[in-house]
Design a binder for these strands. Structure first.
Lengths: 249, 249
DNA sequence: CGGTCCCTTGAAAACGTTCAAATATAGTGG
DNA sequence: CCACTATATTTGAACGTTTTCAAGGGACCG
């Protein structure tokens, strides 16, 4: 089928002087910079970066079973990963916002174990994984960052895993989005829900109807204001209290 | 508090001639051997191995918040990892059988994010992670194996994550145990459940009463035979059919 | 303006939980 | 070796949250 993480307009941007600032959204550059690597080391990292996209809404970045060659950091937009169960129902595994890395769960099988689709206009930084691993043997800081990224993702599923109430799940989801947007410089209190209610439901393991009802309940209690896909957090403290059992912090 | 992954009778075994065969249960040795490394490379790996244990039932291997220094492969016994929620309820994250590696989720925070306790008499191979990472820069096969192990664990939580019925969860759990025992040379159709019903319940996000009822149901339908903690799988085909939605294979 | 898709709302049903209690097992000390 | 206690497991019945089923808005797009 289609090549995983398709190449688009790769070369022009990759050689562009703006490269470093573009890539400053990537976790890898952050790590390397903080490790005090010199320009030459950094340029080695940037040599194996490919800027790909845009992917438009509904377009797939990779599909389950595709050969794994690269991981990718989201530069703009939102990527949803999911699998289809036997009955054809979608199980959403995660949403990836700018700065977050997709494809890490594909390493051990050398194939992507899930599908990844753009929820809006998505731009990616694509990293050849074999090349990156090779480079990591010469850059301990990069290796450490890769280990950290992988290790971090192991615990991520906790949000889904616990047997929490629908309200707690939803609160945790919204707080998580808020924090992740804040981390990238976006407003933590007002943002656009880039996914459909159905996606949220499939992610939180709830029925779409339940998502609807919970959002209404949270709004009636003054915790949030939802207008279609626009969300405003009106009482962050209470929302975080609700989310605490799930997020554990 | 106590040192994470406590040292016990470390030196005598580590220098023993039996070392290699002992460590053949460890994923790392497997990987290195299969990569065709010479003895000197292997001995480098074995220098940073510490054989620790035995831990007796109920004894902790590490606790949440302990400083992370090492990962460990289970050599014998079963290790349960868990966290306590705000109400003090136990959330079981996983059970680790011989050959499986604990501590991988501790890398990114440099602290163990959960507790690990022995369910029976446990023996471990302890690996200093900093030393291992350093060695991995010189042994690409080891680095690759570490990446694979980490990557693999990212998808593991799927068993808990989906919204499956109690029967499906239980079936998937039993099939998973069966396969993992088989992989290490134990009987896939008859084994001892090293964990209490409550542990299974906390792992599967069910009430203990539900676990009891589901096991009875599976037994009444002739899929398994349960006698206290002794389990026999009587109809593997049907059990796997039940588990299929969860395990996805 | 009509159609489609997404979202919302209401009522009934289901699955698992909770509460309560009985039974069984292992460990302890006499 | 046996009684005794604490713990683990099983069972029954009522309850509750979420799902399912059914239908009604509402926005966006042609």
């Amino acid at each position: 089928m289609t090549q995983a993480i398709r190449r688009r307009s790769a070369s022009p941007i990759a050689d562009d002087g703006d490269q470093l600032s573009f890539c400053s959204t990537c976790a890898f550059s952050d790590a390397c910079l903080s490790q005090g690597y010199d320009k030459s080391a950094l340029s080695e990292l940037h040599v194996l970066v490919e800027h790909v996209g845009p992917f438009s809404e509904g377009e797939h970045v990779f599909r389950e079973g595709d050969e794994f060659t690269a991981i990718a950091a989201v530069r703009a937009g939102t990527v949803k990963t999911y699998v289809l169960d036997a009955a054809g129902n979608e199980q959403v595994l995660g949403f990836f916002l700018p700065g977050e890395v997709i494809g890490l769960n594909a390493i051990h099988q050398a194939r992507y174990p899930c599908n990844a689709v753009a929820l809006d206009t998505v731009m990616l930084c694509r990293f050849s994984f074999p090349k990156m691993a090779l480079l990591a043997t010469r850059m301990p800081g990069l290796q450490a960052q890769l280990f950290r990224l992988l290790s971090q993702d192991i615990g991520k599923a906790a949000l889904l895993a616990g047997d929490y109430s629908a309200d707690e799940r939803m609160a945790a989801f919204l707080v998580s989005l808020s924090r992740r947007y804040a981390q990238r410089g976006f407003s933590p209190s007002r943002f656009h829900l880039t996914m459909a209610r159905t996606d949220m439901a499939n992610y939180l393991r709830l029925a779409p109807e339940t998502v609807s009802r919970v959002l209404r309940r949270l709004q009636d209690e003054g915790l949030v204001q939802v207008e279609r896909r626009e969300l405003e957090i009106r009482n962050a403290a209470k929302l975080e209290t609700l989310a605490r059992p799930v997020l554990r912090d």
